[in-house]
């Protein structure tokens, strides 16, 4: 049971009309691990995450959560099974207060056994949010908004947390904060699948890494070996330095 991956993506293909965004992508995320998917713009990273959440339907392949096929289920059903996402662009509910954003997540979390203690712990993790509970989410700074997006995901008490470019558009110091948070989550045993352009940072926190390019997995290995790999730069920044 413990050897079984929490998330298993098998031979996933996704197309937007004629554009084939993913071509037979397979990845695995085991319990308590942090997995990074890195790759240049347009590689298909976001498409991969949206497909796992159920918002996009794959043309072929399957997604399993704890051994059960979830591809084809409604996004809300998949979310209720314990999959949370901090999407590209965060997508906080800007017309709602911070408190209402969190409350929405709490409603979801309660179904999965989340309680007041989880709420308190989450606010302790992001003290800024506690001070801003009554502000509209639209008034948060970029860093605060990212904290809200992560807090919201954690309050749903997920089995696995998906993050799409958590450092995107943030000031360097704030980026440090986000990655420190990811390290802390990992120490607490959270299972994470993360997509990042910031390859250096992503490999620092990750246990395993996949390089996605042109809709295909180019390399899959431990983050450790990828970091030390000599031809890493060639494989990653090659062909016109996509970054």
């Amino acid at each position: 049971m413990n050897d079984q991956p929490i998330l298993k993506v098998d031979g996933l293909s996704v197309a937007y009309g004629p554009v084939r965004a993913l071509r037979g992508v397979s990845i695995e995320v085991r319990r308590g691990r942090t997995v990074s998917v890195i790759g240049p713009n347009g590689a298909g990273k976001s498409t991969l995450l949206w497909t796992i959440t159920g918002l996009l339907k794959p043309a072929a392949g399957s997604v399993e959560l704890e051994g059960e096929v979830i591809s084809g289920l409604k996004p809300e059903t998949i979310a209720r099974r314990g999959l949370a996402i901090v999407p590209e662009g965060r997508h906080n509910f800007l017309s709602l207060t911070v408190a209402d954003n969190l409350r929405l997540a709490q409603i979801a979390g309660r179904r999965r056994g989340g309680d007041e203690a989880l709420y308190e712990r989450t606010l302790d993790r992001f003290p800024v949010l506690r001070d801003r509970l009554d502000s509209p989410a639209s008034q948060l700074s970029g860093g605060e908004a990212q904290q809200l997006a992560i807090a919201r995901a954690l309050l749903t008490k997920p089995l696995i947390l998906l993050l799409d470019e958590p450092s995107f558009g943030l000031a360097p110091l704030t980026v440090e904060g986000v990655f420190e948070e990811l390290v802390r989550l990992k120490e607490e045993g959270m299972t994470v699948l993360m997509v990042e352009q910031n390859a250096g940072k992503a490999l620092e926190v990750a246990d395993d890494a996949y390089i996605l390019s042109n809709g295909e997995v180019e390399t899959a290995s431990s983050a450790e070996s990828l970091k030390s790999q000599e031809d890493f730069d060639a494989a990653y920044f090659g062909e016109g330095g996509a970054f």
Binding site: T53, A79, A84, P87, L104
Partner: peptide, 24 residues
């Protein structure tokens, strides 16, 4: 009410609301 919060969220960003377990 819980339904009210869910409806306001869905009215703003329907897909994100679903990703947080709100039934369409």
């Amino acid at each position: 009410t819980e339904l009210g919060v869910q409806m306001r969220a869905a009215a703003e960003d329907f897909r994100m609301a679903r990703l947080m377990g709100v039934r369409a």
